[in-house]
């Protein structure tokens, strides 16, 4: 039963990932991306990381993909774009992907990794691994207090940067505007 669920989730994830890269309509690609992220969240849950699965659905499939679809709606004027894929880039991408996949298979099908998942002895130890948000909070705010603060600072910087970029300060300042603002000109 477990193994069937695993195969179903991984097939869903990989198929949707392929469809993200191949779909002509970008909105369809974003929808497949949501499906792939939900499949990954299911795999997280199979590994016992229930909190991370919930976080994946909330943050990735919720917030990030909504942002993506919003920008796609804003930007993509013609939905059905003509995908012009050069033969050279197709061949290069295929060679790189096949090489990487074969490398992954060869790396992980050796006896060192071909072992069963560590047995979880009692049900309290899955709780201890990643089932509860309590454990995450205890670890985040004791041992990892510095990374938490750095990440908070990073989010603040990203927010300020996004506002600066989308305020059109850097992108479309033509020379006339620059001279109007009192910047020194060359003449």
């Amino acid at each position: 039963m477990d193994i069937f669920l695993f195969y179903f989730l991984s097939a869903l994830t990989v198929f949707s990932a392929v469809m993200v890269t191949l779909s002509r309509n970008t909105v369809n690609g974003a929808m497949y991306m949501v499906l792939s992220l939900i499949g990954t969240a299911g795999l997280f849950a199979m590994l016992g990381a229930y909190f991370l699965a919930a976080l994946q659905v909330l943050v990735y499939a919720g917030a990030v993909m909504v942002l993506f679809i919003f920008i796609i709606m804003l930007v993509d004027v013609d939905a059905e774009e003509k995908v012009k894929i050069g033969t050279g880039s197709l061949i290069a991408a295929l060679i790189a992907t096949i090489t990487m996949s074969v490398g992954v298979f060869m790396l992980f099908y050796n006896p060192e990794w071909n072992q069963p998942l560590s047995v979880i002895v009692e049900s309290s130890s899955i709780e201890a691994f990643g089932g509860s948000a309590k454990k995450y909070g205890a670890l985040l705010y004791s041992k990892n207090i510095l990374p938490i603060q750095v990440v908070g600072m990073l989010l603040l910087i990203a927010m300020v940067g996004v506002i600066l970029i989308s305020k059109n300060l850097f992108t479309s300042s033509t020379p006339e505007e620059v001279s109007e603002q009192g910047e020194p000109t060359e003449s």
Partner: peptide, 22 residues
């Protein structure tokens, strides 16, 4: 269930993402 199953799916996801970028 083997750990290598999950690792192979993860590697395939990485490879497919790389394919899309290229």
């Amino acid at each position: 269930m083997l750990i290598s199953h999950f690792l192979i799916v993860a590697g395939l996801l990485f490879a497919i993402g790389f394919f899309g970028v290229m």
